[in-house]
């Protein structure tokens, strides 16, 4: 076949451009660590990866939500735990008061102590986490335990101003968790506080029957506080389990994404070396072809 001189050059240039382009693709692959970056590089892969990335993003948010839920639940648990400790202390005082061995001034002293515990209980009940009242249901923007105070400054009643709703936080595609305490628990806390008032009043009045009755009521309330703390602890372990699921889900998605879009460094490196070798070969062979034309022969041999 007759080959025109310009064809030789355009073929050489074409070959070098092809090799340049494959080298550039492989270099991009190696530098980004991704086997494709644009939708047109791998349309199916791109669609899959976009879906996976979106799922991974969602799981990351679920993990963040679970962390928030865990913090709320831990705060609620901590408050309940302190109320439980307080309830134990109150029980000891009540036992002392009900034993009949204390005189009026001692009883008065006990009453003062109980009143202090009452203030502490109300304070604990109105504790906040990140600006939200913990034991208020969803009415988180106002103190749930409102006190009625008499002329002498003594608390005479506690009313629950929260509601019985519980906010559920989404922690996975199909589940949500309520980290705060239930309406029943919150109302039980108000009852507990009012029982403290009854105990204090009975101690003040030296009413031993009243002391015994209040102590018995308090015992049953204390049990509900323990039960609520146990519930809260169960919620925490549920959240932790969801959290570790979200973490492992993210790891799995990450592995899948890198499997789908990650460059195979070993293959890409080998291919790059191949392309570079081929490029070198084209350069050398073209340098030789360019030297040998009839013109060169004539100009060197014909005098």
């Amino acid at each position: 076949m007759r080959i025109a001189t310009s064809t030789i050059y355009s073929n050489l240039v074409g070959q070098m451009q092809d090799l340049d382009s494959s080298q550039s693709t492989l270099e991009t692959e190696l530098s980004t660590g991704l086997s494709f970056t644009q939708p047109s590089d791998n349309p199916t892969g791109m669609a899959t990866v976009l879906n996976l990335v979106s799922q991974s993003q969602e799981q990351a948010q679920y993990e963040a939500n679970a962390t928030t839920a865990l913090q709320v639940s831990q705060a609620a648990y901590s408050g309940l735990n302190q109320l439980n400790t307080l309830s134990n202390a109150v029980d000891e005082i009540a036992t002392e008061g009900a034993s009949g061995t204390s005189n009026a001034s001692q009883l008065q002293g006990y009453a003062t102590q109980i009143d202090a515990y009452l203030q502490q209980a109300v304070q604990l009940g109105n504790s906040q986490f990140e600006g939200n009242y913990l034991y208020a249901g969803t009415a988180v923007n106002q103190a749930p335990f409102q006190t009625t105070v008499d002329a002498s400054g003594q608390t005479t009643a506690v009313t629950y101003a929260g509601n019985t709703s519980q906010a559920a936080i989404p922690v996975s595609t199909s589940s949500s968790i309520s980290p705060s305490t239930s309406g029943t628990t919150n109302q039980a806390l108000a009852t507990f506080m009012n029982q403290l008032i009854s105990l204090r009043d009975a101690l003040q009045n030296g009413d031993s029957a009243g002391i015994a009755s209040a102590q018995s009521d308090l015992t049953s309330s204390s049990e509900s506080i323990i039960a609520a703390a146990a519930d809260s602890s169960a919620v925490q372990s549920a959240i932790q389990s969801v959290q570790s699921q979200a973490t492992s889900m993210q790891q799995t998605l990450g592995t899948t994404i890198s499997g789908d879009s990650g460059a195979d460094v070993a293959v890409a490196t080998t291919q790059l070396t191949e392309a570079q070798t081929a490029y070198q070969a084209v350069l050398e062979s073209s340098a030789r072809i360019m030297q040998t034309t009839l013109l060169n022969y004539l100009s060197t041999t014909v005098p």
Binding site: L34, V49, Q251, G254
Partner: peptide, 16 residues
């Protein structure tokens, strides 16, 4: 819509 190598996400090795 370009895939870039992950720099911020800890678990995913590629991100949009």
């Amino acid at each position: 819509e370009t895939l870039t190598s992950a720099t911020s996400t800890s678990s995913a090795s590629a991100a949009a």
